[in-house]
């Protein structure tokens, strides 16, 4: 469910832009904050507030890779694999994390705690290799630093702080593999 407060924020956004349609993207960000990913209810709420069809809103949501189509893990780890990090050996980092978390890139752990993703250049090539945990940067990541990071995150997951919005929806987590299609295919056919 999208809260009334969230809908009001969307309405305010729609009024703030010269054309209401521009509020789609920030509204979808709100949906994701509320639901953890882009749900049908979320698409519906955005469509209602802005006065568009659900399909229209969905066509925007499926273009941008940051809008999740499936519920992600509580901790979303994005490892940059572009050229700057590649030259600083991000592949070893990624393999290490795959081993440590027991999932392949693009997958979510069975307990719904972690999603491991690869991501394109994060604008941090000077401090490569780099990763993000729930959109916050961790730079100059050595294998030791990665291990320490997972230890810290494990503790956070145990004590329950700080909680991420995706948490409530994890019961819907269907399988390990989150998306059978590549981003590219999803964008073209989605």
């Amino acid at each position: 469910m999208i809260s009334e407060e969230a809908k009001q924020r969307m309405r305010n956004l729609a009024a703030r832009y010269p054309v209401a349609r521009s509020a789609i993207m920030p509204s979808l960000h709100i949906v994701q904050q509320e639901e953890g990913y882009i749900t049908q209810a979320g698409l519906q709420a955005v469509a209602e507030v802005i006065g568009l069809t659900v399909d229209d809103v969905e066509s925007v949501a499926t273009f941008y890779t940051m809008y999740y189509q499936q519920p992600p893990g509580k901790k979303i780890i994005k490892v940059c694999t572009s050229i700057g990090c590649y030259l600083r050996n991000c592949d070893a980092l990624l393999e290490h994390l795959e081993e440590r978390l027991g999932v392949k890139r693009g997958e979510t752990t069975g307990d719904g705690n972690y999603t491991l993703q690869t991501i394109e250049c994060l604008a941090s090539c000077g401090t490569a290799p780099v990763l993000q945990v729930n959109d916050e940067f961790v730079e100059n990541v050595t294998l030791e630093k990665a291990d320490a990071l997972i230890d810290t995150l494990n503790k956070e997951l145990l004590t329950g702080t700080p909680e991420t919005p995706g948490a409530q929806r994890l019961d819907r987590l269907a399988s390990k593999a989150t998306n059978p299609y590549s981003d590219r295919q999803r964008r073209i056919h989605g």
């Binding site: 703030r16 521009s22 993207m25 920030p26 890779t65 940051m66 809008y67």
Partner: peptide, 8 residues
């Protein structure tokens, strides 16, 4: 207006 992208 500060507008955030979403990965593209």
């Amino acid at each position: 207006i500060v507008h955030r992208g979403a990965g593209a």
